[in-house]
Design a protein around this nucleic acid. Structure first.
Length: 107
DNA sequence: TATTTGACCAAGA
DNA sequence: ATCTTGGCCAAAT
């Protein structure tokens, strides 16, 4: 009984993102690792789709996900917007980057 | 079914 | 420090 359950992967990502408290951020790598995979890219791609975005009535903080380097890699509505949102949550951004040491939320 | 893509990452030049 | 290359995995086309 091997159920591939494709599509479940993305759902998992959203669940994890929901666990990230306000004022904290996580990295694609961390999420992928949590899922027990190395599909960093797949995670980000799932965010791009983000069926649970705030605009869709969901509550997945896709903007709290950043690169392992602390950079705001990308955002569906523009990196600029992403930075603003993070600042609004109390996260300090320096030179377009976030201090992972301070704001990275560990599961 | 096969190919391409993507909000990544690490290493090399 | 920046740019390029290769590798990784899942979803889209």
């Amino acid at each position: 009984m091997k159920f591939k359950e494709k599509g479940n992967f993305a759902e998992r990502c959203y669940e994890i993102l929901r666990k990230v408290p306000k004022g904290k951020v996580t990295t694609y790598k961390a999420v992928a690792k949590k899922l027990g995979t190395k599909a960093y890219r797949a995670v980000g791609r799932a965010m791009n789709k983000n069926p649970h975005s705030f605009f869709n009535g969901g509550n997945v903080a896709c903007h709290r996900v950043i690169g392992s380097d602390g950079s705001l890699v990308g955002f569906a509505h523009g990196l600029k917007k992403k930075g603003e949102m993070l600042k609004s949550e109390g996260i300090e951004i320096k030179n377009g980057k976030v201090d992972l040491e301070k704001y990275e939320f560990k599961f």
